[in-house]
Amino acid sequence: MSALLTLWKKTSGLPAGKKIFSTIYSQKAPYFGSIHATVTEMRPNYAELHLPKRRSVQNHIGTIHAIALCNGAEMAMGALAEATCPSDKRWLPKSMSIAYTAKSDGPFVTVTAETDPEQWEKDGDLDVRVKAVTEAGVTCFEGVIKLWVSSKKK
């Protein structure tokens, strides 16, 4: 089990544990801290976080900025990959293809990342499905983050 998943299991059930975990996780890639997201679920093949609408992530029309949504998708994908990648393999983000489908209105969006277990069985490209949904249930962002998964050298 990865160190990040172990940390999740130790902290997520504590009072304010998900926020504590998210703050620690944000140190792994400091730009994650800029969006003030809270990981709400982390398990193999799935991760979810809440990204609050704050002044620091708003665009000129008062919705969550597209790049803040991308940072949220990267954060969710990273949690999923750390919880899922077999110990004899490694992963590296390769590309991102995103469609912005609606305004990100509301006090927060929920960002999810998902894979299927069989995707991790072979080396090569692996598509992680990502999306962001407003509190009202409107999908405002969806796409794929492509990972390169390879066996660790022995």
Rank of each mutant, 00 (worst) to 15 (best):
C70V: 06
G17I: 10
G33A: 15
V133W: 01
G17Q: 02
F108C: 10
L147D: 01
A37F: 08
V39H: 10
K154L: 10
V109Q: 12
I67F: 06
S97A: 12
H36F: 14
N45R: 07
R43C: 08
S22F: 10
K154N: 15
V149G: 07
E121M: 11
D123A: 15
Y25R: 05
Y46R: 14
I98K: 01
Q27L: 12
T101V: 03
R90Y: 09
K154D: 14
R129M: 11
L69I: 05
M42C: 13
T63L: 08
E48L: 01
E114W: 09
K89Q: 06
G124V: 13
F141C: 02
A76Q: 03
G13S: 09
A136N: 08
R55A: 13
C85K: 00
H60K: 14
N59G: 06
A102K: 01
E74L: 10
L4G: 01
S34Y: 11
R129N: 11
G72Y: 00
K152F: 10
T23Y: 12
V149D: 06
R129P: 04
S97H: 09
G17E: 08
V109H: 01
L147K: 04
L126N: 08
K152W: 06
E82R: 04
S26Y: 09
A83C: 04
A47L: 00
E41V: 09
P107A: 14
W91A: 02
D116N: 13
L14F: 08
M77V: 08
P86K: 00
T134R: 02
C140N: 02
I35Y: 11
G137M: 05
K152N: 10
A76P: 02
T84F: 03
H60S: 14
G13Y: 04
L80K: 06
F141S: 00
V144G: 02
K94D: 02
M96G: 07
Q58C: 15
D127C: 10
I98D: 05
K10L: 15
K103R: 15
E114R: 15
D127H: 09
V138H: 07
M77D: 01
S22I: 11
V57E: 01
P52W: 00
S22Q: 12
H50T: 12
A79P: 01
L7I: 05
K122H: 15
K10W: 15
W91Y: 04
F32M: 13
T11F: 13
D88R: 03
E121C: 11
K152H: 06
D127E: 11
K19Q: 13
A73H: 01
A79D: 05
P117G: 10
F108K: 15
L147T: 05
I35S: 12
A79N: 00
A29Q: 11
V57K: 05
V111G: 07
K9W: 02
F141N: 05
D88T: 04
Y46P: 08
C70Y: 03
K28W: 10
D105P: 07
S151F: 05
Q119L: 10
D125H: 12
I35L: 13
V57H: 03
A68K: 04
A113K: 08
T23K: 15
V111C: 08
T38N: 12
E118C: 12
W148A: 14
D105K: 15
I67E: 09
L147V: 09
G33K: 12
P93Q: 00
S12A: 15
L51G: 05
H36C: 14
W120V: 14
L69G: 02
S2T: 07
A47W: 00
T11Q: 12
T84Y: 05
T110W: 08
T11C: 11
E142C: 07
